[in-house]
Simulated scan of single mutants.
Amino acid sequence: MYQDTKRVRTKATVYLDQYESDVITALANYLGVPKAEVMRQMLMKEARDVLGIDLAGLVDSVADQAG
């Protein structure tokens, strides 16, 4: 089914307070994408920034998909 079995997504639980949850929900609604996609893109962007990895030309962002 999957060409690369390492690309199968696993579930991770993140606990947010109401304010944080509202921000994610509002952004997902604004962009018209699922909340999981917003959070995944934000998490991976932060990880790349912290690690100093520049994949800007290779990975579509949520904002690119919406516009």
Rank of each mutant, 00 (worst) to 15 (best):
M1A: 11
M1V: 03
M1L: 06
Q3N: 10
Q3K: 10
Q3I: 04
D4E: 15
D4Q: 13
T5A: 10
K6I: 02
K6S: 15
K6Y: 09
V8F: 03
V8M: 11
V8H: 07
T10V: 13
A12K: 03
A12F: 06
A12N: 03
A12T: 06
T13A: 09
T13Q: 07
V14R: 02
Y15R: 10
L16G: 02
D17Q: 04
D17F: 06
D17W: 05
Q18H: 11
Q18K: 13
Q18F: 08
Q18Y: 08
Y19C: 08
Y19R: 13
Y19M: 13
Y19V: 15
S21G: 14
V23A: 14
V23T: 03
V23K: 10
V23F: 06
I24P: 00
T25R: 15
T25L: 12
T25G: 06
A26Y: 05
A26C: 02
L27T: 12
L27S: 09
A28M: 05
A28H: 07
N29D: 15
Y30E: 14
Y30L: 10
L31C: 12
G32K: 05
G32W: 07
G32P: 05
V33Q: 04
V33H: 03
P34I: 01
K35W: 01
K35A: 00
A36T: 13
V38Y: 03
V38H: 03
V38S: 05
V38E: 01
M39F: 14
M39C: 12
R40V: 07
R40G: 01
Q41P: 00
Q41E: 10
M42C: 12
M42D: 02
M44R: 09
K45Y: 08
K45S: 15
E46M: 12
A47S: 04
R48A: 13
D49T: 02
D49L: 12
V50F: 10
V50A: 09
L51Y: 08
G52A: 05
D54H: 06
D54R: 02
L55Y: 08
A56M: 03
A56I: 09
A56S: 15
G57N: 09
G57M: 02
V59C: 02
V59N: 02
V59P: 00
D60V: 01
D60T: 09
D60S: 09
S61T: 15
S61W: 04
S61P: 01
V62W: 05
V62S: 05
A63F: 05
A63C: 00
A63P: 00
D64M: 07
D64I: 01
D64H: 07
D64V: 02
Q65A: 11
Q65V: 11
Q65G: 06
Q65Y: 14
A66E: 09
G67Q: 08
